[in-house]
Design a binder for these strands. Sequence first.
DNA 1: CTGAAAGCGCTTACAG
DNA 2: CTGAAAGCGCTTACAG
Lengths: 348, 348
Amino acid sequence: MAIPGAASEIPGHPPRVTAAMVADRAGVSVATVSLVASGKTGGRVSAGTVARVRGAIADLNYVVNRVASSLATGSSNFVILVAPDISNPFFARVITGVRESLGSSYQLLLSVTDSGQMPREENVRELLAFRPAGLLIDAPSPQLMRYLGADVPIVLLDAPGTQNFAPAVNLDVVHGAEALAVHLAERGHRHVGYLDSVTAAPTFELRRTAFLAKAESRGMTRPGSPRARSTIDVGSAAEEFRKVWPAWDRAGVTAVVCATDTHAYGVLQAAQSLGVRVPEDLAVAGFDDLPYSAMSQPSLTSVELPARKLGRAAAALLTALIQGRDSTSASPLLPSRLTIRESTGDST
Amino acid sequence: MAIPGAASEIPGHPPRVTAAMVADRAGVSVATVSLVASGKTGGRVSAGTVARVRGAIADLNYVVNRVASSLATGSSNFVILVAPDISNPFFARVITGVRESLGSSYQLLLSVTDSGQMPREENVRELLAFRPAGLLIDAPSPQLMRYLGADVPIVLLDAPGTQNFAPAVNLDVVHGAEALAVHLAERGHRHVGYLDSVTAAPTFELRRTAFLAKAESRGMTRPGSPRARSTIDVGSAAEEFRKVWPAWDRAGVTAVVCATDTHAYGVLQAAQSLGVRVPEDLAVAGFDDLPYSAMSQPSLTSVELPARKLGRAAAALLTALIQGRDSTSASPLLPSRLTIRESTGDST
DNA sequence: CTGAAAGCGCTTACAG
DNA sequence: CTGAAAGCGCTTACAG
C-alpha cells in the first residue's frame, strides 16, 4: 500500500487540490467535476450543478492534474521542441513560427543543448518518456535518426537527407547556396574561404557542399587549409576569422562565405579590426538573412531562409500527425533566396 | 469503462511497450520489472531474475512511462525554466549554469515567450499542471508574483524586490550601476542618455533607477525626452538609437548607458553609421559583460553580471527546496562588477 | 526473493 | 442529469 497522501505532498508545501476536494465542496461526484473542469458538459450537466462546481473550482483554485489526465486519456497537450544553439536568433524565429501554428492547442516546451552540442539519443529517449503529444527536432544529427521509429509523432526541421527516417520540413538551401556561388563568380572572385559551424548538422554540411560544388564549377577554388569553423556566436566567429585570415589572405582569398549570418557578423567585425575593407578587399556573405543583416555596416549579402515559415510548417505537420491525419504527407521544401547587399559589393 | 488499449494508441503508431509486456516476456511480475527498471534491486532480486528482466527490457526497448511513475510517486524528474527573450546570449549562459547544477538529477525544459513578452499567470498555471519537480522563473514581472504561493517549489532569478513572494537569486546590479555612474562622472560627462529594454522586468527597472539616481547625485542629467527603449536585439537597438540620437545630441548627451550589452552593440553600430565616434563623441556602456564585449570595436565598458553563477545558484536553491532542505534559505545576491573598456575612453 | 494488491488523480462508458 | 466503477501504467508496503 502506498503511503496515504504521499503522492500529493511536497515537503513544506500544502497538499494539492484534487478533483475529490472540489467534489466534496460542491456536493457532487468527481465524475461531474471532471466534466465541468474540462468543459465537456454538453447539456449533460444541469446549469445549477455547473455553477456550483465552477464556484468550488474557483474557491479552491483547482487546476486539473495533467499527469493524471494524461495517463487516463493516453494523450497529452504539450509538444517538445528539441534544438541546439538556442541563442541563434534564427532559432528564436523558428520558435515564433511553431507557436503561431500550435496556437492554444498545445503548449510548447523546449529542450536545448549547450552551444555547439547536438541532442543525443539518450536525451530524446528521456523526453519521449514524458509522453509529449509530439516531438519537433531541429537540425538533428544523422546519428539521432535511428531512434526515430518511436511511438510518438515526430517531425524534423532543417534536416536534409533524413526524410526517410521521419517526416521533415526542409529548407532548399541548395538553390540559395548555388545562387551565391554564381553571384561571387560574376563579381570576379577566384578564391573563397568558408567559415563553417562546428555543429555537426546536415544542414550546415549541405550549405557548404552545395556552395563549394557550384563555386568549383564556376572556376573558384578554396584554400586547402586552414579549415575555419566556430560556434554560432559573433565573438567566436570573429576570433576564428582573425586566426585564419593571414593564411587565406596569402592564398588570395577575396570572398568569405559563412554558415550563418551570425558567423558573418563576426567576420565583418574582425575584418574591420584587421583593417580589411568590406567589400573592397573582401566580400562577405552568410545564410539566414536575419533582420540585422539589412542594417549592419556594411549590410550583409545573405541567403534568406524562412525561419518562421519553417516553424509554422513543421508544427502544422506535427499537428496533422498527432491527429491522425496526413501520416503519409510529403516533406515540404521551403524556398531560399539570395539577397544581395553591400558586403559583396552591391553598390559598385 | 475506458476503451481497452485506447490510452496507449496513437493513430498510425504501434502500441507502446509497458511494464506488463516486459513482465510477460521475462516471466515475472510487473512489480519486479519496476524494481529492476528503476534500479531499486538492492539485493532484493536475484541476479538471474535481474538479468532476465534486463534482457526483456532491452529486447522490447522498454522505457518507463514517466507520466505513470510520476502519478504513482507524486514526484517528477524535470524542472521547467520560464523565461522571456530566449535569444539574449545572457540567457543562454544562465541555462548553462542551471544545467551544470541540475546535473543528471533533473531534466531541464524551457518555456519561453515571444521577444519582449513576459510570461503570464495563466501560462504558469498550465505549466504547474504538468507537475514539474520545480519551477525556475527568470526576470518575472511583478504581476506574476501573486500566483506564486503555489504547491510546487519555485525559485526566481534576477527578480529584485520580489523576495517576499518566493525564494530568489538576484544580481547586485545596484553597485555595478552606481560604479558606472561614478565612472562616467569622473570622465566629465554631464548629460547621459539611457536605452532601456521594453521588457517590464524589475531587473531592468532597477538598473535604470540605480544608475540614474547615482548619476544625478554626481551632477549628471538625463534629457527629459525622448525616452528610448527596444527589445533585446542589436537591430532594434540600433534603430531606436538612430531615432533618438538627434534630440539627445541637441541636449548635449555625451554618454549612453544601455540595459544590456546587446542593446549597446546596436548603439555602437548605429553610432558608426551616423558618423558619431565612440568614445570621442559618445561614451557607450551596457550591462551583462557578454564575451563579445571584450572584442567589439571599440570594446565595450560593461557591468559584469554573472549569468552562469546565477543559473547555478538558482538551480542549487531549487534542488534544496525540492528535497525539503533549506526551505527558509536566504536569497543570495551575486556581486556585479564594472569592467571599463574602450567605449568609455579606457585608452585615453 | 517474488507477487498480489492498493493507490496516485484523473476520464469515460455505463447504469440508473 | 448524476454517480459508481474500471482503467490508464506505474510504485511500494506487505505477505508469503
